[in-house]
Design a protein around this nucleic acid. Sequence first.
DNA 1: AACGACTACAACCGCTCTGCC
DNA 2: GGGCAGAGCGGTTGTAGTCGT
Length: 196
Amino acid sequence: MEKSSAAKEYSKGAWTPEEDRKLAEVIAVHGAKRWKTIAATAGLSRCGKSCRLRWLNYLRPNIKRGNITDQEEDLILRLHKLLGNRWSLIAGRLPGRTDNEIKNYWNSHLSKKIKQKEKQSEAPKREGKEAQRRRGAERVSVEVREESSSNGGEESKTSVDFDVDEFFDFSNESSLNLEWVSRFLESDKGICDERS
DNA sequence: AACGACTACAACCGCTCTGCC
DNA sequence: GGGCAGAGCGGTTGTAGTCGT
């Protein structure tokens, strides 16, 4: 919320290697907080918001760059089905990937794939009413705990609907994904333990 | 080779939430 | 309780690179 941005002109557009270097240096010394101060200290004519975004999406260590693997793609699909457009939450389950990256990947790859799939599946959609009714009965509403970094570990609850059969269809699951599922469950269990 | 269409992704924008005074 | 600033999120835009004609 750069309310002073009207008064001061910030530069926009692509970051230069020099800007990246300055930003990284200041963050290494002062840490990744008070972005406005960081921008000023680094002598950058960028707004704090821009610095934060650059750091989180590009300069931060442990960022995994390059193609999204099949496993990761599958994970994104599942998580999106579960959480919707909660990119930061989805990114939280994919180490090294950023919300922006996942969002972009979704918009450019997966949304198209899904549309294609929907088109294909529309044709043979001649299910009986009974089958549809049964499927409806199998949809459940679950409460998803959100571990948000912004609220200091506090968690809120969101009620979401998902299709049990599809989400828990691990028939062609690789070991990597199964590992994630157990870790997901473990981390949730850990939170519950902490509470009690 | 030239040009337009398409794609991928970095960056921006607007909004909400949270914490502090 | 209200105002302000910082932080974070999701949607959208801009543009460089690639591809097809």
